[in-house]
């Protein structure tokens, strides 16, 4: 899923400093699961903004709504009435959401209330990690089911580098496991260590962001 983190309140307050009426829009998708943009977080952020602005002697009218999803035009539609007399929307969906809101309301200011950080998942309660960089050409099958593109700081295809120590990556002050150490252990378990002696040649990055904006088309589903 898409992982996000709340932006600091001060940053959001600064974005909306010129406005009197806003809508805080959440999403019931990924950001609800990672506790950053669901119904509960919409209510919390709305209250925080009201309180802060009241304390500053500059009241803010905040409406709240949480979309089924913000990455589908039909689920943005319910915002129509709410935004009718609003100055701006603060979306706390992943960064896809505010762009769908932008697309529907050409004359409305739209701001992101969270930072979209990665495609990943929870590894323990309250901790989420990155697992994928959407390179567009999945190679994990060659690496014991683990991704060196997203999970190695240098995106090595022939790792591990000299900065792998005791299973820990030199980047991240001890917080990041060396994915290449994990790949090594995994290949060992699978009896595939011989595959790690092969020189892995060049990756085709044209399917990644490098090739330009990506569009996926399923002809049979197009209307």
């Amino acid at each position: 899923m898409v992982i996000g983190e709340s932006k600091p309140l001060a940053e959001i307050l600064d974005m909306i400093k010129d406005f009197k009426k806003i809508v805080v829009a959440g999403c019931k998708g990924c950001v609800t699961v990672c506790n950053v943009g669901g119904e509960k977080e919409v209510a919390i952020l709305a209250s925080e903004l009201r309180i802060a602005r009241k304390a500053a002697g500059n009241n803010l009218d905040v409406k709240e709504y949480t979309c089924e999803r913000q990455c589908d035009p039909e689920y943005i539609e319910p915002l129509d009435d709410l935004v009718a007399d609003a100055d701006a929307v603060v979306s706390i969906a992943c960064s896809v959401g505010p762009q769908y809101v932008t697309a529907r309301y050409p004359y409305l200011h739209v701001f992101p209330g969270i930072n979209t950080t990665s495609i990943g998942g929870a590894v323990e309660h309250g901790v989420w990690k990155e697992f994928c960089q959407a390179c567009g050409s999945c190679v994990i099958g060659e690496y014991g089911g683990l991704c060196p593109i997203a999970r190695c700081a240098k995106q090595l295809l022939n790792g591990p580098c000299g900065g792998s120590s005791g299973g820990i990556c030199e980047v991240g002050k001890g917080s990041i496991p060396c994915i290449w150490h994990l790949i090594y252990d995994r290949m060992k378990n699978l009896g595939q260590l011989h595959k790690m002696t092969e020189v892995k040649l060049y990756k085709n990055w044209s399917t990644s962001r490098d090739g330009g904006l990506r569009t996926s088309i399923r002809e049979e589903l197009k209307q």
């Binding site: 240098k154 995106q155 090595l156 295809l157 022939n158 892995k200 060049y202 990055w205």
Partner: peptide
């Protein structure tokens, strides 16, 4: 960073 290639490549 770039890392289009690694040292082996």
């Amino acid at each position: 960073n770039v890392h289009d290639l690694d040292s082996v490549q």
